[in-house]
């Protein structure tokens, strides 16, 4: 058992993308899902407790080692480049896409009250948003949705993990 635990740890470390339980199951062969999940939970706890620089996180349907937030300034120094932050405008557009997907540009603009072609383009380039199809209405406008990368960047297991949105109460008078 301890052996498998070490293998799982090594596999998660060596994987480029978040490693899913299914993939681990394929590689490990005769292990059942539940046992693998237990090992992962156990490892997550261990990393949380050992006061090191890493933590094991569950993102985008898999598991991945990431540095703890406390050490971000050092990593930024190491990497040398400053990542381009997501502007508040882009963040608002992204929120609408995340909660209303599949959604057209016109629908986003109706909610935000501004032209969103610029922020949509930025989000497409950052691969946080993708084209998911065309809406079957006159003009066949393009519909947008979020990507797996969106889940990865925003530390989400899946879309259901999105924070619940405050209920929009209809005005009744």
């Amino acid at each position: 058992m301890d052996d498998v635990r070490a293998i799982v740890e090594a596999l998660v470390f060596a994987s480029d993308a978040p490693l899913s339980v299914e993939r681990l199951k394929d590689i490990l062969g005769d292990m059942d899902r539940k046992a693998i999940l237990e090992i992962l939970q156990d490892l997550m706890l261990e990393y949380r407790q050992r006061s090191g620089g890493l933590c094991l996180m569950e993102v985008a349907g898999g598991y991945q080692f990431r540095t703890k937030t406390d050490y971000a300034p050092w990593i930024k120094k190491l990497r040398g480049i400053r990542p381009v932050p997501i502007s508040p405008a882009a963040m608002e557009t992204l929120s609408v896409v995340a909660y209303r997907q599949p959604v057209t540009r016109q629908e986003i603009e109706k909610i935000r009250g501004v032209d969103v072609s610029g922020s949509l383009k930025g989000l497409l380039e950052k691969k946080l948003v993708r084209i998911v199809g065309r809406k079957n209405v006159p003009g066949k406008p393009i519909m947008y949705g979020t990507t797996k990368r969106f889940l990865e960047v925003f530390d989400l297991k899946d879309l259901s993990e999105l924070p619940t949105m405050r209920e929009i109460t209809e005005m009744e008078e």
Partner: peptide, 18 residues
């Protein structure tokens, strides 16, 4: 929602992978 998303541990801003 946008504000709460921004508060999450963002990859390449707050947390980093290999």
């Amino acid at each position: 929602v946008a504000l709460s998303l921004d508060k999450r541990k963002l990859l390449d801003r707050d947390v980093f992978k290999r």
